[in-house]
Design a protein around this nucleic acid. Structure first.
Lengths: 122, 122
DNA sequence: GAGTAATATCAGCCATTGCTGATATGTTGT
DNA sequence: ACAACATATCAGCAATGGCTGATATTACTC
C-alpha cells in the first residue's frame, strides 16, 4: 500500500497533469511558450472559440500552469514556471520514441484525426 | 494559428499526459518508481481492484509509459524511460509551489477528499 | 490433461468534462 | 453616463472515461 504524503498528493498531481491532458489546453500552452499573450491573441493562435479559450485558461490558471497580468483592458497570460516548459519538452522527447504505440491506443479516441499527412510518400 | 508538426502531435501529447492524469494511474507509476513489480504486487501496493489495475496498466503500456516482461506466469511492469521519472519529479516540484491554487480548482472535483490534516494550527 | 494461479478483457453504469451560444462583468474612451 | 471592446461565466448537450463484477486467456504443476 502506498502511504504517507504521496497518497495525499496523488489527486492533486493528477489534476496538474490533466491541465496538460487536453489538446486545446496543450495548444494554448504551446502558444504561450513563445511568450506572453492576451486572450484575443490566444483565440487567434489556437483557433478555439473565445469562451472555450477563456474556460481552458481559467482551468490552467487555477491549476497553476499559467499566470495573468492585467494590461489595460487586455489580460496577458504567460507560463507560470520554467518547469512547465521542461515538462512539455520531456513529454515531446518521450513522444518521439513512443508515438507508434500511442497512436494504436484505442482507449482514448482521437475524434478528428485526418488520416492524411502521415507520410511524405504518397 | 498554430502550424506544422506541433499541431499534429497535440492530440498524441495530450494522450500521453492523460496517462499521468488519473490518481489510480499515478499511484501505479509512483509505485513503479521503486522498481519493477508484477500486477499482483501493484494490486497490493495501490489497493485497486485487479481488473482496474490491469486496465490502467494496459493504458499505461499502450501510451508508452511502462514496459512489460513475462516472468513465469507473472508479468513484470516497469517504467519505460527515465523521462517518466523526471516528469513526475518536475510535476512534484511544481505542485509544491502551486498546491493551494490547485485545491481551490472547482473545475475538477475531488471525490473523496478528507478535509483533515491540512494545517497544524487548530 | 485437469486444476489452479496470474493476468486480461468485457458489458454496463455513473460521473466527469469539453464544447457551443447566450449573457454577464469589467475596463476604456468620449 | 454611454458606447464599445475584451474577457469571463453559465446552461445544457454529447461524448469520454473510470469502476465493478463476471468471464476469458495464458501458463505453470501434478
Amino acid at each position: 500500500m502506498l502511504k504517507g504524503p504521496i497518497l495525499q498528493t496523488l489527486p492533486l498531481k493528477a489534476k496538474l497533469f490533466r491541465g496538460f491532458g487536453d489538446p486545446s489546453r496543450l495548444a494554448i500552452l504551446e502558444a504561450l511558450r513563445a511568450g506572453p499573450m492576451t486572450v484575443g491573441e490566444l483565440v487567434r493562435a489556437t483557433a478555439l472559440t473565445q469562451p472555450n479559450t477563456s474556460n481552458h485558461l481559467a482551468c490552467l490558471r487555477e491549476c497553476g500552469l499559467v499566470r495573468t497580468r492585467r494590461r489595460g483592458r487586455f489580460i496577458e497570460y504567460r507560463l507560470s514556471d520554467a518547469r512547465v516548459d521542461q515538462i512539455l519538452d520531456l513529454a515531446g522527447a518521450l513522444l518521439a520514441e513512443t508515438a507508434e504505440g500511442l497512436e494504436a491506443c484505442p482507449r482514448y479516441a482521437d475524434p478528428e484525426r485526418e488520416t492524411a499527412a502521415r507520410e511524405g510518400v504518397s
